[in-house]
């Protein structure tokens, strides 16, 4: 009875979609934009803007930031369109709008392409061609190079693909200054090196999910022990790199303290992940590293924002 009524409902939903009528609600379309990732993009891009103290009109800066956010959302939407098959078999992603049957794949593709083109064109008109080109590159890098190619073909997928997530400060600086400076390149490097320990900590916990979906994440290909070594190696690089803004003069005293404590926290957790390899404690510490890595990056960028946006900057040297 239940399966018969489900079948009728499915047939009807199919007929509605075939007739060109969307089944999705506004919230489903919003979910396609990966709002949490969008927030991170807006946040890092905003920091990329404020550290260079731009002289452009705040309205133009706001409009640029909005277009960067929409571009990031569009690439997330295209990623969901392409990955709908593997999202359907992973517990973490099976409730997304396309595998849940709320939005048809064609709708998501059209939505993603429209927003991609729109955000790039408007950013070009509002700021400059360099920023628009960088935003277009970021979208293509995430949707095509990462999602369509790297994600299903190499365990280095999130290492190389991490460049897409690290680019927003670079796009933002280009939007407000017309060029790419070393400040945004340092922020790019921090996010880029932060990405592997962040994602591999999650992959250690969710390796069963990735195995089922056939995604060659590092723990599934090289094994958990090798992944733990690489997490530690990247974190050893990340902790001093987090202090680079101080060395280059745009990270102040508060930033130096936060980056030092946070870097030591990341190192301690990464070492625990390396040391504990069996059972529940190993999973727990990997989850802790995943959660702390988010807090670490958030605190680094929030401190830079407070120092430059709210005037809390106190130089470490001189």
């Amino acid at each position: 009875m239940t399966s018969a009524s489900n079948s009728l409902t499915d047939n009807r939903s199919e007929a509605v979609v075939t007739a060109g009528l969307s089944q999705g609600d506004v919230s489903d379309f919003f979910a396609l934009l990966k709002p949490r990732v969008m927030f991170l993009v807006v946040f890092t891009a905003l920091v990329g803007m404020v550290v260079v103290h731009p002289t452009i009109h705040p309205v133009v800066a706001f409009a640029s930031l909005l277009m960067i956010a929409i571009g990031a959302g569009a690439s997330g939407c295209l990623n969901m369109w392409w990955d709908a098959d593997i999202d359907a078999v992973m517990t973490r992603t099976r409730a997304r709008p396309i595998p849940a049957g709320k939005i048809a794949p064609g709708e998501a593709l059209a939505f993603g392409l429209t927003l991609s083109a729109g955000s790039v064109i408007v950013l070009g008109l509002v700021s400059n061609v360099l920023a628009a080109g960088l935003l277009a590159f970021t979208i293509v890098f995430y949707a095509v190079i990462y999602s369509m190619w790297l994600k299903r073909s190499t365990p280095q997928n999130i290492v190389i693909g991490g460049a897409a997530g690290a680019l927003p400060p670079v796009v933002a600086q280009a939007a407000v200054t017309g060029h790419v400076g070393w400040e945004s390149l340092i922020l790019f490097a921090i996010i880029f090196i932060w990405t592997p320990p962040h994602f591999w900590a999650l992959a250690l916990v969710k390796s069963g999910d990735y195995e089922r979906a056939g995604i060659p994440m590092m723990p599934n290909v090289a094994g958990p022990d090798s992944t733990r070594r690489q997490i530690l190696a990247y974190t050893v690089l990340l902790a001093p790199l987090g202090l680079a803004p101080v060395a280059f003069g745009f990270g102040g005293l508060a930033y130096a303290i936060i980056a030092t404590i946070g870097g030591l926290g990341m190192l301690a957790l990464a070492f625990q992940v390396y040391r504990l390899r069996q059972g529940e404690p190993a999973m727990r510490v990997a989850q802790q590293l995943f959660a702390f890595s988010i807090l670490y990056l958030f605190l680094l960028f929030a401190t830079l924002l407070a120092e430059h946006g709210l005037g809390f900057f106190r130089p470490v040297f001189g």
Binding site: A15, V16, S22, Q23, G24, D25, F29
Partner: peptide, 15 residues
């Protein structure tokens, strides 16, 4: 073409 349910009509209006 199927007739839209009240919920589908609401969703369309919200869109």
């Amino acid at each position: 073409l199927p007739r839209l349910t009240p919920e589908e009509q609401k969703r369309r209006r919200r869109r």
